[in-house]
Design a binder for these strands. Structure first.
Lengths: 229, 229
DNA sequence: CGAGCGATTGAAAAGACTCAACCACCGTGG
DNA sequence: CCACGGTGGTTGAGTCTTTTCAATCGCTCG
């Protein structure tokens, strides 16, 4: 269970680091980060940063989930990404020199470390491995978003929901998918009511089942077929 | 007028370089590029690279326009970006170590230079300015695509068309927008017929006019209003 | 001059959205 | 312990946008 404290999490012992961009860092650099970062416990729904705000550093998720989203004119959120343990959030704006183009909020209680802009940029400058990792990461995200755009443009809501459930199932791993219907709709890019109706169809067809608000994927293969590879 | 030859274009004299990522390069590096790059004339519609292909270098547009796109299951293209003079195309895949996730074709006859992967990565490694430029560029594109996703998800086709026309008007500058209806539809993310009908509406309302297939924007302010800021 | 492709129009159908009402669960406070 | 209020989830009905399919038009190039 997650500890509700602001206790310092030592990078060296951070289990999430294994899957992280920071995994390539050596003892020395790691210690530098360790000494300059701060760790915080976030309640569910708290903001890490807001759209238009000025970036002051990056957030490293030790444990928990974070939604990255942007708001449309009428205030409707579009969720761009759901980040989980080991991911670094908010480093895009470190390089662009612009305000955040997206916002980020916790989706559940989380332990998250903060590394200041200066420290982070310093690391990137002096550590070629990290630098290459960042370039690779940015590139991958770019590819992801291109396919996201394509899916939005060409797939039906039903197909997008199937694809979204597969992605989320991966992110939530052992756990059931745990998002509000509204967040899920904002990830798929549809109205909440439409989402609920389609989810019901999926339940009727045995692809998923629900535990109150949590969603359990029962038939990945089926969803893959529905999503139209 | 554009010269139909494969004549070498000297980087130092390249007018497009002013707006380019490469603009920060010094004489020495510039000469290195100059000696190793190759310049080609492309006819309209020729591919620079295809989805799934292995990246072997980057393309620098001296003159012309290039569409960057990805194909859906039924073969429908989604145009992600229209690149013009001064832009470098295909550098994302240089860093990801993966095959191209998108394809690129010329939209009109173009003069385009090619820099091999090794030379390019070498430059990036040794030139901090270029490196930072790349990071900034990748970050900006990431932000662009986030807003692209949001628009796809939340805006009507009419609003997206208005927005697309504004973007294209910017890209085409002095010239009229010159895209097939199908390409335009694939950029907006709609069916060709729908695009034509909406374009007709815009004409009736005096926002644009057409010269055969070319589109002239008459009322930017109006389009901005239509696009729903 | 004819072929062919891109552009355009029409009509019908489908998908998705909106609005409105209702339900169910949860925590609060009396 | 229970009534209450609130939020999030669900359902129904009607509407509208957008798509699809089919047919026609009109350049442009051999």
């Amino acid at each position: 269970m997650l500890e509700k404290s602001h206790k310092h999490i030592t990078c060296k012992n951070c289990l999430s680091r294994k899957d992280s961009l920071l995994c390539s860092m050596t003892g020395e650099d790691l210690e530098k980060v360790d000494s300059s970062k701060s760790c915080s416990y976030f309640k569910k729904g708290q903001p890490l940063f807001i759209e238009g705000g000025l970036p002051r550093g990056v957030f490293c998720i030790n444990e928990g989930k974070v939604k990255v989203y942007s708001r449309g004119e009428e205030g409707k959120e579009q969720i761009i990404h759901v980040a989980t343990s080991g991911e670094i959030v908010g480093f895009r704006a470190m390089f662009s020199g612009e305000p955040y183009s997206v916002a980020a909020n916790t989706l559940e209680e989380s332990n998250i470390c903060f590394i200041s802009k200066d420290d982070f940029l310093d690391l990137v400058d002096t550590n070629p491995n990290l630098r290459n990792g960042i370039l690779r990461e940015l590139s991958k995200e770019l590819a992801d978003r291109a396919s996201f755009i394509k899916n939005m443009a060409q797939k039906s809501v039903r197909e997008r929901l199937a694809a979204a459930l597969l992605i989320l199932d991966d992110i939530y791993g052992e756990d059931f998918i745990n998002l509000s219907r509204e967040d899920l709709a904002n990830f798929v890019g549809t109205a909440t009511e439409t989402l609920i109706r389609l989810l019901k169809d999926f339940k009727d067809d045995g692809f998923v089942t629900t535990h109150v608000r949590k969603i359990e994927v029962l038939d990945k293969e089926g969803l893959i077929r529905l999503a139209g590879v």
